[in-house]
Design a protein around this nucleic acid. Structure first.
Lengths: 260, 260
DNA sequence: ATTAATTTACGATTACTTACAATATTTTTT
DNA sequence: AAAAAATATTGTAAGTAATCGTAAATTAAT
């Protein structure tokens, strides 16, 4: 599983777009390379004018760049694998369900898969991202219930206190969530605190939690965890997921499905 | 197992289309040829401009994925008039304001006008339609607070009980509303009951109500009224509005502005 | 038999890591 | 509040590993 520098640097920018600031130490751990490598990466990106280097890490102040690494670009990463994951996940949706779809790009492919299934009648979808909402807008058999909250312009996700309030009185049957990183030890991690808070809360309101992650998310660790592995009922991923990690998770009793 | 070169290179492109990044090592293994062969393939594809070569592999150079939400800027005959109305309305927005924009197409032009004004600092916009929300998403100086509620397929507006609940605790400085019909006698009318309910409610929560209607809306009457003329503080319209009706409204004490 | 495609081999290049001294930052002491 | 000590972060250099391009050797295709 050879890493490409381009890939890594893009990941750094992606991370930065989500949380404005990154530290060399965290990046080193998350991306599994030495700190020196991260430093040269950051210095390179600094020279290119893409980030602002500071002692201990880097900042991304320019709004222009944040938008560059928005949802649209994330969507194109690993797209075919993500589509397979979405297709498999859609088989777990039934008529009359009330499901939640988070704002991750992997979960968006689930929305697309649901659209194609015309056997589903009268389902209610609660999307926590605006792009998913739009994806599902045209479907007459799908009720879209949008949560209130602040709209993040980088990712199009809906978060904040109003969002948590919105979910307080709801009971969701199935919550489909993505993650920035997943590992047996650290659990499910993400990079943005507001989203972490929201996901934590959603899990308490959902009867069944299904995780959708492509293989690249294994061995990545985000800023903070929103759940342990054993808090979820299913994990759906693709064949590029590292086998030994999958095995470890399975041994702990959590169902892991590989989409092909 | 002998492949044709073109076949193999096509396969590389296909793999790339899904993964965005590919490494020489992985390609060599999966296509069962030596790394040198892969390298010459990649270099060839690079020369053709189909991929971008980097140390260790290659990445896809895709023409900027078009924003797929194919903005349904409703092809209205009065578009230029609406734009003028939006531009004039934007002069009533100040820094630090908290304003509400409804889901009508006329008010959408106000959102576009606000985007262009970079003298406005730190304003909060509550849009009751998803298209307005997206229009304002990119702007760093604008906080977008999305109300919760059901998303209507046809118009992209957010309505229903959850929406009313959302506004219950809010106090809005300025509410910019459209209307399906406007007349001195019937007041401001609309065609959809949920939207009527919502607008009635919004008016009770707003300190100032500003109506944006193009001239064609005069002498149209909808299903039911959401407000009387004298409940609003300003009406902004264009030169095509019938003069005698405008005069009648002005005489009742409501300010009517004509955008040019 | 001739040409094209691929592989093997190898020195050159690039990328990454470890190690370490220099600098910056924070904490503790005075 | 300043000085001293402890901690963290930095850039550089040397060593290791991976990847590169080239060319000769091998294999496949016509």
């Amino acid at each position: 599983m050879s890493y490409l520098i381009q890939h890594r640097q893009q990941k750094i920018l992606e991370l930065l777009a989500g949380k404005e600031h990154v530290s060399v130490t965290d990046l080193s751990k998350s991306l599994d390379v030495s700190e020196v490598t991260i430093r040269t990466d950051l210095n390179k990106l600094d020279k290119l004018g893409k980030i602002a280097r500071i002692h201990g890490g880097a900042y991304l102040i320019e709004e222009r760049l944040k938008q560059e690494y928005t949802f649209q670009t994330r969507k194109s990463l690993n797209h075919s694998n993500k589509q397979k994951i979405g297709a498999l996940a859609s088989t777990f949706v039934d008529s009359s369900d009330c499901i939640l779809l988070d704002s991750s790009s992997t979960v968006l492919t689930l929305a697309q898969a649901i659209k194609k299934r015309n056997d589903l009648k009268d389902i209610t979808v609660i999307p926590t991202g605006i792009w998913t909402a739009i994806e599902l807008m045209g479907c007459s058999n799908i009720n879209v219930l949008l949560p209130g909250g602040y709209l993040r312009h980088t990712t199009g996700s809906i978060t904040g206190l109003p969002t948590n309030d919105f979910f307080r009185d709801l009971l969701i049957q199935k919550a489909f969530l993505g993650a920035w990183g997943i590992s047996y030890g650290e659990g499910l991690t993400d990079t943005h605190l507001l989203e972490i808070e929201l996901k934590k809360f959603i899990i308490t309101r959902a009867r069944e939690v299904i995780i959708l992650v492509d293989g690249s998310k294994f061995r990545q660790i985000g800023l903070s965890a929103y759940a342990n592995i054993n808090q979820v009922s299913k994990i759906i991923t693709d064949a590029s997921a590292p086998a030994e990690e999958v095995e470890r998770i399975r041994n702990s009793g959590v169902e892991v499905l590989i989409a092909n």
